[in-house]
Every structure is written in structure tokens, then in C-alpha cells.
């Protein structure tokens, strides 16, 4: 009973955020939500299925560009669904490589996909607008526009695009967490974990290893696609640069910091990695430690990079199960 009460309080608090907080926090929150969704997907792929991927940014980009392109042509809700499916198809298409190539070779092969993606997004100017980017059509749901055009005011706060997107983000994050939790504890989740721990044992238990590896890539890419759609909506305009190797590494770091294989951990890692630089940057003026950009000292951007690098090293050396491991102190496993 108290669990439900707690959940209800959290929901109410999250729902009230747009009323109290200014645009910067909403923007930061939306980026974090987009990252959470995509990171859950990568956590399933890396942590549960044991497949190292540096290609996540590519699939995020497919979702983002897919939505931007389709939402001009079909209703945005359909465009969202289609973009997610498109990312899933892209993941499935990569699976011949994912199924054949193992471990670290897979990680590095997937790196190739990011570079290939960058090349395509830069050059397919008809769809992506090339390096200048493309505007993302606003979301709308059954005629309700996610823009500021209707002049909606709640409790004296004008509800513009960010405020409305906030709720879309909350719903998508909740669905993603719920699906992820269910999946991990189910037949496919067990199959993936067995593939991770021993492909031979998985196969002799009747699990089609190649198919499940492909499925893991597909599901993880669909998560990435959904995260991409939300990210595109939050940005309003997307450029290829945003979906490069650095983003892929960011996702991997979110998963590692959160604790690979933990859905909740991935979410926590995503908030840490996404929000930290934005918040540090926001307050760089008032934090005495940090120098102004270009003055030669340690600026906010650099400080957050350093913190982030140090976090990776610290987590791997001292807390291998990540944030999730710190919360649930489990019995030591051989």
C-alpha cells in the first residue's frame, strides 16, 4: 500500500515540475528523459545480452531523423511509432554482423556503424538537411498541438511546447521502464542472460543464439529510436554532429555507471551523464571553482568531462555493479 502511495507522490511531483521550474530545467529534464529511454535499451543489450555496442548513437539518430522526416507527412503519433520501428529495422539489419561477430570485435564493428551513419546523415541532404540540420515538426496528439499556439495557461503558468513535451516524456519514460522491467524477468530476458553467460549452454537449452542476439539488437535499437524521437522534439532542430561517437560513448558510460543490466541503474546513469554538464554550465558563473570558457582555467564543460571520466574509472575500479549495485547491496556472487 505504501509503495503505491510513494509512487503516487512521485508522479504528482514530477507532473508539477513545469509549474515551478523554468525552461532550463525542463529542457535539461527532457534531454535526460530521452537519454534514459535510449540507455535502457543499451543496458538490455550490453548488460543482459552481453553484447558490447558503440553504435547506439546511430540508432538514436535513425529515430530522430525518422521522426523529423515522417512527421511532416503523416500524423506525428504515427511518425513516432514508425520512427521507432525504423530504428528496430536498422538494428535487425545490423544483426548479421552482430550474430557473427563476438565480444570486442562487435564493439569495434559497431563503431564503424556510427561513422557510416555520420557520413550518410551529412550527405543525405534531402532528408537530413546535411550539416545545417533539419527542423523537427512539433508533436501533436489527436489534434492537441504540443506548441504554445493555443495559449494554454495552467495555474498561471503559460504552457508552451516544453511544458507539454514534459508530460509526453514522462509517459514515454514510464512505459520504457515498465517494459524493460518486464522483459528482464521474462522468457526472452532469461534467454538473453543465458546467451551472455554461455552461448553453448544457451544453445543446448533450446535457445536460438543467433536469433536472440538479433532480437536483442532490434529491441535495443527500438529503445534508441524512441529516445531519438524525444531528443529530436526537445532539440527542435537536429544536426548530424549530435549523433556522433561521443554520444555513443556517453550511452555506454551511462550503462556502466548505472550498472550494466539494471534498467533503473541505466536511468540513473543517464540522468548523471546528461544533466551534469548542462547544470554545471548553467551555474558556471556562480561556481567559484570554474573558470570562464577560454580563460585557460578549468571551465564547466571540461570540469564535467573530467568528472565523467573519473566516474567511469572509479565505478569500474571500486563499484563494478554501478549505481544499481550501491543501492541493492547483494550477496557476493562468484
Amino acid at each position: 500500500m505504501s509503495r503505491w502511495l510513494g509512487a503516487a507522490v512521485v508522479v504528482v511531483l514530477l507532473a508539477a515540475v513545469p509549474i515551478w521550474f523554468e525552461a532550463f530545467w525542463l529542457q535539461t529534464g527532457l534531454f535526460a528523459m530521452a537519454a534514459i529511454i535510449a540507455a535502457i535499451g543499451l543496458s538490455i543489450l550490453v548488460g543482459i545480452a552481453g553484447q558490447l555496442s558503440l553504435a547506439h548513437a546511430f540508432f538514436v539518430a535513425i529515430g530522430a531523423y525518422g521522426y523529423a522526416y515522417l512527421a511532416d507527412r503523416i500524423p506525428p503519433l504515427l511518425a513516432l511509432v514508425a520512427a521507432v520501428l525504423l530504428a528496430g529495422v536498422a538494428g535487425a539489419l545490423f544483426s548479421p554482423i552482430a550474430g557473427r561477430v563476438r565480444g570486442i570485435y562487435l564493439g569495434l564493428a559497431s563503431l564503424g556503424l556510427v561513422f557510416l551513419g555520420q557520413h550518410i546523415f551529412q550527405n543525405a541532404t534531402g532528408i537530413t538537411g546535411g550539416y545545417r540540420g533539419v527542423a523537427v515538426p512539433p508533436f501533436s496528439l489527436f489534434g492537441f498541438e504540443f506548441t504554445g499556439a493555443d495559449g494554454l495557461v495552467v495555474l498561471g503558468v503559460p504552457y508552451g511546447p516544453l511544458e507539454k513535451l514534459w508530460y509526453l516524456g514522462l509517459v514515454l519514460v514510464a512505459l520504457s521502464l515498465w517494459y524493460g522491467h518486464n522483459l528482464v524477468r521474462s522468457r526472452p530476458g532469461r534467454a538473453l542472460a543465458t546467451v551472455r553467460d554461455s552461448e553453448v549452454a544457451a544453445a543446448t537449452n533450446g535457445i536460438d543464439v543467433v536469433r536472440y542476439k538479433a532480437a536483442a539488437f532490434t529491441v535495443s535499437s527500438m529503445y534508441a529510436g524512441l529516445g531519438g524521437v524525444l531528443m529530436a522534439l526537445a532539440f527542435g532542430r537536429i544536426v548530424p554532429e549530435s549523433f556522433g561517437l561521443l554520444l555513443s560513448i556517453d550511452f555506454l558510460v551511462m550503462v556502466v555507471i548505472g550498472g550494466a543490466g539494471s534498467v533503473g541503474g541505466a536511468a540513473a546513469g543517464a540522468v548523471f551523464v546528461t544533466a551534469l554538464p548542462l547544470i554545471l554550465n548553467h551555474y558556471s558563473g556562480s561556481l567559484p571553482l570554474l573558470a570562464e570558457p577560454g580563460s585557460g582555467g578549468v571551465g564547466a564543460a571540461e570540469f564535467s568531462r573530467l568528472l565523467y571520466g573519473a566516474a567511469i574509472v572509479a565505478v569500474l575500479l571500486f563499484a563494478r555493479d554501478g549505481l544499481a549495485g550501491l543501492v541493492h547491496r547483494k550477496e557476493r556472487v562468484v
Partner: peptide, 14 residues
């Protein structure tokens, strides 16, 4: 391998 690789990634970032 993956853990060690990501550790070097962290060092690289620093």
C-alpha cells in the same frame, strides 16, 4: 575485455 576497454575509455576522456 569489455570492462577493461571501457576503463581505458575513461582514462582517454580524462
Amino acid at each position: 575485455l569489455g570492462t577493461l576497454a571501457i576503463l581505458t575509455l575513461g582514462v582517454d576522456i580524462l
